[in-house]
Each structure stands twice: as structure tokens, then as C-alpha cells.
Amino acid sequence: MSLEEKSEGNLAHIIQEMSRMLKVVNESIMDPNDYDIDKYDELKSLYDLLKQKGTLTVAETQAFIAELREYRK
């Protein structure tokens, strides 16, 4: 799957994967419908960083979630 193309499907995949990687308990905060496709590039950058980083500390996880909140509709 190529995530370089902006699409609703790719956005949903990125959000769902970040939710899984961040081990989010309350999945309602990671509903792909709550994120705007206009923020795709920023969300893709966060996704790439998260994939590269792998394991996060608790503080890093909280920072990622806080950053994701900024991109919600």
C-alpha cells in the first residue's frame, strides 16, 4: 500500500495504525472521520516518525497524542 497519495482510505489506515502503535485504549479519539484530509501531510509525517521510532516512552506517547489532537476537526 502506497501512502504517498492523499486519500480518505490512506488517512484512515494511518490513523488506525497510529492508534495501534500508540496502544490507545479509547479508540474514539482516533476515529479517522475526525481528521481532515487537508492535514494528511502532517499526519503522514507523524506516522512515519512513529514507525521509525518504534517504541515510545510514556512522555513521548502523550506528546504524540497531544499533537494528534491538534489535527482533529
Score class of each variant (00 low, 15 high):
residue 1 M to I: 05
residue 1 M to F: 03
residue 3 L to H: 07
residue 4 E to C: 02
residue 4 E to P: 00
residue 4 E to M: 06
residue 5 E to G: 00
residue 5 E to I: 08
residue 5 E to L: 07
residue 6 K to E: 12
residue 7 S to V: 00
residue 8 E to R: 15
residue 9 G to Q: 13
residue 11 L to T: 05
residue 12 A to C: 01
residue 15 I to N: 03
residue 15 I to Q: 03
residue 15 I to T: 04
residue 15 I to V: 10
residue 16 Q to K: 12
residue 16 Q to I: 09
residue 17 E to G: 01
residue 17 E to P: 00
residue 17 E to F: 01
residue 18 M to T: 07
residue 18 M to R: 07
residue 19 S to L: 06
residue 19 S to I: 02
residue 20 R to Y: 14
residue 20 R to P: 00
residue 20 R to E: 14
residue 21 M to R: 12
residue 21 M to Q: 13
residue 21 M to I: 02
residue 22 L to H: 05
residue 22 L to K: 05
residue 22 L to S: 01
residue 23 K to H: 10
residue 23 K to V: 07
residue 23 K to C: 05
residue 24 V to I: 07
residue 25 V to Y: 11
residue 25 V to S: 09
residue 25 V to Q: 11
residue 26 N to E: 13
residue 27 E to L: 09
residue 27 E to Q: 07
residue 27 E to K: 12
residue 28 S to W: 15
residue 28 S to T: 11
residue 29 I to D: 04
residue 29 I to Q: 04
residue 30 M to E: 03
residue 30 M to V: 06
residue 30 M to C: 01
residue 31 D to F: 14
residue 32 P to V: 05
residue 33 N to M: 10
residue 33 N to W: 11
residue 33 N to A: 15
residue 34 D to H: 12
residue 34 D to L: 11
residue 34 D to R: 12
residue 34 D to C: 10
residue 35 Y to T: 07
residue 36 D to T: 09
residue 36 D to P: 03
residue 36 D to V: 09
residue 36 D to L: 11
residue 36 D to Y: 06
residue 37 I to F: 03
residue 37 I to W: 06
residue 37 I to C: 03
residue 38 D to L: 11
residue 38 D to A: 06
residue 39 K to V: 04
residue 39 K to M: 12
residue 40 Y to R: 06
residue 40 Y to C: 02
residue 40 Y to V: 06
residue 41 D to R: 12
residue 42 E to F: 15
residue 42 E to G: 05
residue 42 E to Q: 10
residue 43 L to M: 08
residue 43 L to N: 02
residue 43 L to T: 03
residue 43 L to G: 01
residue 44 K to C: 10
residue 44 K to D: 12
residue 45 S to Q: 09
residue 45 S to W: 08
residue 45 S to P: 14
residue 45 S to T: 15
residue 46 L to C: 01
residue 46 L to K: 07
residue 46 L to Y: 06
residue 47 Y to L: 06
residue 48 D to P: 00
residue 49 L to T: 15
residue 49 L to S: 11
residue 50 L to Y: 01
residue 50 L to K: 05
residue 51 K to A: 09
residue 52 Q to T: 12
residue 52 Q to Y: 03
residue 53 K to S: 06
residue 53 K to C: 00
residue 54 G to E: 04
residue 54 G to F: 00
residue 54 G to Y: 00
residue 55 T to G: 02
residue 56 L to M: 08
residue 56 L to G: 05
residue 57 T to S: 14
residue 57 T to I: 04
residue 58 V to W: 14
residue 58 V to Q: 11
residue 58 V to D: 10
residue 58 V to P: 09
residue 58 V to F: 15
residue 59 A to D: 14
residue 59 A to E: 14
residue 59 A to I: 10
residue 59 A to Q: 11
residue 60 E to W: 04
residue 60 E to C: 00
residue 60 E to K: 02
residue 60 E to D: 09
residue 60 E to M: 03
residue 61 T to W: 04
residue 62 Q to P: 00
residue 63 A to F: 10
residue 64 F to G: 04
residue 64 F to R: 09
residue 66 A to C: 04
residue 66 A to N: 13
residue 66 A to H: 05
residue 67 E to Q: 13
residue 68 L to I: 14
residue 68 L to M: 14
residue 69 R to T: 12
residue 70 E to F: 13
residue 71 Y to W: 14
residue 71 Y to G: 00
residue 71 Y to F: 15
residue 71 Y to R: 01
residue 72 R to P: 09
